[in-house]
């Protein structure tokens, strides 16, 4: 009886350890995938990408890993990128972290949080080229569709963000 119990116990722990290893490996794989993909772009690269005739509204959030209010609102942008809208919205999380911090801070930060919205790193940070009204303070958010553009140097709640984007899309004639 006690032998049978011991065998069962061994079997149980065996299965458990296999499961744990699998989960760990899977998580590792996800983390590694996410780490690999942060691209460094110039303002020109970014503009070529977003300022073109398109039915997509681009929501470009300018942030950095060291900026607490930025980090606090990132989940709202992530949520916006996932939510269905009556008009297509593409969220770009554009980091202004120092270039040297890409591998040591930015990529691990994104990998850890598992954001699915696209992350880019802006370098050099040509503040006036992003928007002449930008003082350089972050967080800041740029909304672009074709030639229309709105710039916000402020923090958002999710509701404010959603309304702002909807208002931007809705104001098109």
């Amino acid at each position: 009886m006690s032998n049978q119990l011991q065998t069962l116990r061994l079997l149980f722990f065996g299965i458990l350890s296999v499961l744990v290893t699998h989960v760990a490996f899977a998580q590792n794989a996800v983390a590694q995938n996410a780490v690999a993909s942060i691209e460094v772009v110039t303002v020109q690269d970014l503009q070529t990408r977003i300022e073109r005739p398109s039915d997509t509204t681009y929501v470009v959030n300018l942030w950095a890993t060291w900026c607490k209010p930025c980090v606090a609102e990132l989940p709202y942008f992530e949520r916006l990128s996932k939510e269905q809208s009556y008009s297509p919205v593409k969220v770009l999380l554009v980091s202004v972290d120092a270039k040297k911090d890409r591998e040591t801070k930015l990529e691990p930060f994104i990998a850890k949080r598992g954001f699915t919205a696209e992350v880019l790193q802006l370098w050099p940070v040509a503040i006036d080229d992003i928007d002449s009204s930008w003082s350089g303070a972050i967080p800041a958010t740029l909304i672009v569709k074709g030639l229309r553009k709105s710039f916000f140097e402020k923090e958002f709640t999710f509701d404010e963000l959603k309304l702002t984007v909807e208002k931007f899309i809705g104001s098109e004639k």
Binding site: A64, C67, P69, V125, I127, G136, A137, P139, K154
Partner: peptide, 9 residues
Amino acid sequence: TKAIGCTIK
């Protein structure tokens, strides 16, 4: 000049 910084709260 302009530079990156934090917003005034």
